[in-house]
Design a protein around this nucleic acid. Structure first.
Length: 221
DNA sequence: GACCAGGCACATC
DNA sequence: GATGTGCATGGT
């Protein structure tokens, strides 16, 4: 049973913003690296870090496996939390070499979505949002990515309780829409696009494309 | 100078 | 199980 509200929100956002062209990246491996680096961080800072890795010739499984962790931290410094993210990248790489052929993602790409998700969540530093970003944007699986903007938007429009947890939000979005990778890709990107402009922690009201909904973005709590 | 960003793990209660 | 805290750079 699709949700009329969710379909209407998608239509309004698509009308306003159009295709978002997510996820920026030249390969699934680069997308995964970006997914870890972008945790609680502005994407522009992530781009600098990824550029540093490319310039150093290290943006590949073998490169990240072999690089000294302190050098890695220095290269990803612009992305913030560089020490912890260096460890997280190493954790992912170790998992990839333990589960793939010489670090290739080909074998893990054959795993069913549920078991791949469970396996990703076992990696230190990969939580639900990062795992789902990897599943959707690197592995083309129909998984709805939930982030802080998504929770805020759904809560402020009273589509969900403001304190709904990650899985509740994901279940709501996935059950209310078609399980379509292209739709999920665009929908998440559009919610982030809207959130950046109108759904910051301190709400900004005028001009939001969702103003026409029963509960518009101006409702603060 | 304050606030925020495409989170997560861990400690403490 | 809920809540608080550390992690950190760079743009607005």
């Amino acid at each position: 049973m699709y949700s009329a509200a969710l379909m209407e929100i998608y239509r309004l956002l698509d009308d306003r913003y159009g295709p978002q062209h997510w996820w920026p990246g030249d390969s699934p491996f680069e997308i995964i690296t970006g997914a870890i680096l972008t945790q609680n961080t502005n994407w522009l800072n992530v781009e600098k870090a990824i550029s540093n890795l490319k310039d150093a010739g290290l943006l590949d499984p073998v490169g990240l496996l072999q690089v000294d962790i302190d050098r890695l931290a220095g290269l990803i410094r612009p992305a913030g939390y560089f020490n912890i993210k260096a460890r997280r990248l190493k954790s992912f790489i170790e998992w990839l070499f333990a589960n793939g052929r010489r670090g290739s993602i080909d074998r893990v790409a054959e795993m069913p979505t549920d078991s791949l998700r469970e396996s990703l969540l076992q990696i230190n530093g990969i939580g639900p949002e990062t795992a789902d970003s990897i599943l959707l944007y690197a592995f083309d699986r129909p998984v709805f990515v939930v982030d802080a903007y998504t929770c805020r938007i759904m809560g402020r429009h009273r589509l969900l309780e403001p304190d709904a947890d990650y899985e509740q939000v994901r279940e709501f979005l996935e059950s209310g829409t078609a399980a379509d990778t292209t739709l999920f890709n665009e929908y998440h990107a559009l919610l982030v696009r809207l959130g950046k402009e109108y759904c910051r922690p301190k709400p900004k009201c005028a001009g939001c494309p969702l103003e026409s909904l029963p509960h518009d973005i101006c409702e603060e709590f």
